[in-house]
Each structure stands twice: as structure tokens, then as C-alpha cells.
Design a protein around this nucleic acid. Structure first.
Lengths: 295, 295
DNA sequence: TCCATTCTCTGACTTTAGTCAGAGACCTTG
DNA sequence: CAAGGTCTCTGACTAAAGTCAGAGAATGGA
């Protein structure tokens, strides 16, 4: 059976069986919509966030919240930082209701697994865990953002922390702010990959010289590695470099980042002479961009 | 992360992403309900079957069918065998509409996979295929049926065919009818495991002597092997033996069926002397039933 | 042949899940 | 401080997805 057919078959199986897992909502007399909302309010969150995370109409969310409020499950109050926004948080009763849904959902999952031997249940966990990562990775969205904005700063922060941990002599991040400028404006770009609103990977492009771009700050969240995100990010960044009018991409890296080295090599980069004075770099790569569309 | 948590996490991921796969229905201006119905009518089927397969109210199905009929997608006519029942079948236009949905759904699956490298897409197919089997196996239902009924006959037929193929000297099935009697009535039982209406495994129990039951005709559909069904069927059959008031189960088997041999050994059966004159048997097993509940 | 049961259908109803067009409060920028 | 934009809410609406209570035909068994 080919992969497309497998995916579709699984979709049908899961759809038919999902009652086994989802009926939690019906069991509690709570409609799917408001239960979904309840699950999404872990900690205080703005109405807008809820809306975008669940992809719902503002009127609809407002109405659902009104319902939960009437039941005494949530508090809605203006956000002190911007009083147009409103912040929703669970009350004690709300936490209890959420816990009930949780328990019920957990019970259903447990019941399903109980039908399998421990070995097979464990195997199901393994394959679903892997499928989960791959599905999430396949549905990531790439987005150009301001390198000085909060998403970029958080991602780059995580990247720099990791360098500091992994480089034998640590990493001194004092130059990070200067970089942000170079990756914004007309001669640079900064990309993030987002899944359910979370930033899971990032990467930047800046101009070295006319016709020559450089890729920097490429990073994938540790939980998201092994799902092809780095290669896709690299391809997107190359597209951005081409979009800036360059024909050549360069980048540098350190020996410690072994997965990066093999990625660059397999993506068609060839090693060149030192082209900058980055004290942490040990390898310098270059790739000539062709018209072909990168993955 | 424990298995239950993985299952729940996957359920959420899939739920959120399933739009990527299911929106096929919205794309065609066809409501989810009637599209589902259209998919279920592969070959002519009774209204009742549709209802039970999809778990819907009779009035609702009737109304949906009326809609499809108005669009000229299905024919509904009385079942000649029982004119209370009505049989639904696709018209040429119905097959075309179904094909459209199929294509669209396939396109969406393809689009999702296109985001992954071929290697990872293939891996996703592998893990989802395995998850599919395990999920279906976990949600199988066991049912006592008449050993002379159509489900039992079909399953036993497949079993005997397999013996005929696998035994070096073939298998002569002339005694099958006699057996059916012994597994019905007050001194025997016949079980099938069913998934979405299909019989995927079977097994029977008969009485050898007071206090001694025998398990026979245990079979799992080839596509469903490796998912623990045989072990579960064995456990259920042992429960039936106990339910008939016996304390001891016996069974026989042939060397060719290696997976059966190791199943019996690992399930606590010990080999005993020949207790019957079955010319195909090479091994005879016995297990003393305890009060403990078998899986 | 009668009676209980089965099967499908219809009409009347409800709930859920949304969409859409403003209104009003608030924020940012020139 | 005016203008334009953002954020949430309300009211009015719609479509989909069912549910429920029979009615009417057909069947199976006593």
C-alpha cells in the first residue's frame, strides 16, 4: 500500500475510533466547543490568543466564554497592559471541570490501551509519538518576522544558550543585537517556523556583499529535531537569499555542531576558505544558487 | 512521556490537523454527513447497515439518503429478500461524486506528505500503518455467534483453506460440518472478533468430557496478525471454557503452525499425551484454568 | 390468521457550531 | 487631540447534525 493510501486509511480508522477518545465531551454534558476552550485555558490567556489558536470567529469565542463565565468556570477581566484586550483565566471550579475532562479523556485512552498487551501498547505509544512529531512537522508554517520582535528574540535566545552549552569554551552572545539589525530591513530576512503558535525553528539571512548572502542563526527546537525541519528551513532561507537578488550563499559553523555539518554537506554546500573573522567558526561553506526551487 | 499521554497528545495533534485531510467535504460543498454516507456505499447496502456502521439515527439517515437521491447520486429500492428493508446503491453520478471526494482527499494527503522529505514521508507511512493496525486491533469486539451462521462459516472456511495451503499434505475439510454442531448448543461456543463489521478472527470451544473443554478452529485473518489478537482470542475462549463449567482446556496442533505452538507455550499450556485421533495433530496441550481473569 | 416485531420514513423539534455586521471602548501615531 | 486602527462584544442570522415520536408496510412465529 502506498503512503497516501496508508495516510487515508489511518484517517478513517482514527475518525471512526476517535469517539473512543473524544466522547469525553459528550459524557460530561459539555459541548465540544466549550470543552475545547476549557482545555486551551491552561494559564491566563487573552481572548485573541484563544481565537487564533483555535481558529474561531471572535463572536463565537465571545459567546462560548460568556457561557463558561455563567457557569462560573472562567474569569474574564481586562488586560492591564492593553485594556482593549481581555484576559481569561480558570476559576477553581473551572480547574475542577477541566480536571474532570482530563480524567475522563485519560480513562478512555487507558481503556483503549488496556485492550493491548503491554508490549503492543508500548509499541503503539512509540509509533504514535513518532507520527505525532512527523505530522506536526509536516504542518509547520514558515513566516518572515521582525528579527527584533519577541518571537525572533526568544528563538535566537534559545539558540545562543545552546551554543553556550555545547561549545567547549562557551559562547559570548554580546554581538546578538547588532546581528538583528543586519537581518531586518531591505538586505536581510528572519524566518520562524511555527506550530500551533509556538516557534519551533528559526533562521536568518543577511547580505555580505553584492550577490552574496549569508545564513545565520539557524536553529531547531530540540524537541523537534529529526523531523526534517532543519533541511526545510535551510531551503526556505536559500529562497530568501535568492529573493534578495544574490546568487551565492555562505555560512559558517563549528565542529561541535555535527548535525549541521552533515546537513550542509548533503544540501550541496562545499567547504571554502575562511571568509569572516568569527572566532567560533571552524568551517566555512558556500553554495551557488540555481533557479531550481528548494524544498 | 507515558503511553497514555502520548495517545492523548497524538489525538490532539490529529484533531487539529485533520482539517488538512477532512476539509475535502467542505471543498465540494457537500456536508460532512452526506459525504460520509457516500463513502460508505461502496457496493449496494441496506439502510440498516449504513445506520449501524455509522451509528446514526434512522430518521437522520433516511433524510440524508433522500437528499442524495434528489441529487441523483443513489438509488434506493426494496430488498427482494425482505421487503421491509431497502437497498441503497450508487448511480453513475454517485460514483463520480464519490470519485471526486476520493481525489480531493488523496490530494490533501499528498499535499501533507509533500512537506516531508521522501524518507520521512515514507517513515510516516510506516508508523501510521502500524498504528492503524494496532488501533483497529485494540477496538475489535468479541461476539458469541452461531457456529453454523454465515460469519462463522466464512471464518472457518478461511481457516480450513489456510490449513490446506500450509500443511505439506493439504487438509481434508470434510468433517467441518460435524464440528459446527459441537461448538453450538449448551456444550460449546463459537466466537468471532469483529472490526467495522468484518470478521477478523474466530475460535470455538467444545466439551470433551465433564470438566474438560477443547479449543478448536482458532484463526486470525492474515492482515490482522502481529497485533495480539490470537492471544486475546485464546483468553476469551478460555473464559468460555470456564463458563461452561470446565476446569481444564485442551487443544491440539500441527508442527507447521509455528506461531500457534509458541503462543500456546507462552500462554501456560503444557504438552501432554495424544488425547484424540486427529490425524493432523502432532502436539497436544493442556492448561488448568484458575480463577484469574485472562486478558 | 393474528400479534408482536422489524424496518424505513416523515414531521416537528433541538442543539451545536458557526458567520456577519456593526457598536463601543481603547490604543497609537501624526 | 483627531484619525485610524485594534480588540471584544452583541444581536441577528444560517446550516448542519441530530433526536424523538409515531405511521405504515412487511415479516415471523404461535
Amino acid at each position: 500500500m502506498d503512503t497516501v493510501a496508508t495516510l487515508r486509511a489511518f484517517n478513517r480508522t482514527w475518525g471512526r475510533r476517535s469517539g473512543v477518545l473524544d466522547e469525553s465531551f459528550l459524557g460530561t454534558g459539555r459541548a465540544y466547543g466549550s470543552a475545547r476552550l476549557l482545555f486551551e485555558i491552561e494559564k491566563p490567556v487573552t481572548v485573541r490568543d484563544l481565537r487564533t489558536r483555535l481558529g474561531l470567529d471572535s463572536g463565537y469565542v465571545s459567546r462560548l466564554l460568556r457561557g463558561l463565565q455563567r457557569e462560573g468556570l472562567v474569569d474574564v477581566s481586562p488586560d492591564p497592559e492593553d485594556r482593549r484586550r481581555r484576559v481569561v483565566s480558570l476559576t477553581a471550579a473551572g480547574r475542577r471541570a477541566r480536571g474532570d475532562l482530563d480524567d475522563r479523556s485519560e480513562g478512555l485512552a487507558r481503556g483503549l490501551l488496556a485492550e493491548l498487551s503491554p508490549r503492543l501498547a508500548d509499541e503503539l505509544g512509540q509509533v504514535l509519538g513518532r507520527a505525532d512529531l512527523l505530522m506536526r512537522a509536516a504542518t509547520v508554517t514558515f513566516e518572515v518576522v521582525d528579527p527584533a520582535g519577541p518571537d525572533a528574540r526568544t528563538a535566537v535566545g534559545a539558540y545562543l544558550d545552546e551554543l553556550d552549552r555545547r561549545f567547549p569554551s562557551g559562547f559570548d552572545a554580546h554581538e546578538a543585537d547588532h546581528d538583528a539589525d543586519a537581518m531586518g530591513g531591505a538586505t536581510g530576512r528572519f524566518l520562524v517556523a511555527r506550530s500551533d503558535g509556538d516557534v519551533v525553528a528559526c533562521g536568518g539571512v543577511q547580505t555580505l556583499a553584492d550577490g552574496v548572502g549569508e545564513i545565520k542563526r539557524m536553529w531547531v527546537h530540540p524537541d523537534w529535531r529529526g523531523a526534517g525541519l532543519a533541511r526545510r528551513m535551510l531551503g526556505r532561507l536559500e529562497q530568501e537569499v535568492a529573493g534578495l537578488g544574490h546568487r551565492v550563499v555562505r555560512l559558517d559553523t563549528n565542529d561541535t555542531l555535527v548535525e549541521a555539518l552533515s546537513l550542509y554537506r548533503s544540501a550541496g554546500y562545499r567547504e571554502i576558505e575562511r571568509y569572516n573573522d568569527n572566532p567560533y567558526a571552524r568551517h566555512w561553506f558556500e553554495k551557488r544558487l540555481t533557479g531550481s526551487r528548494a524544498r
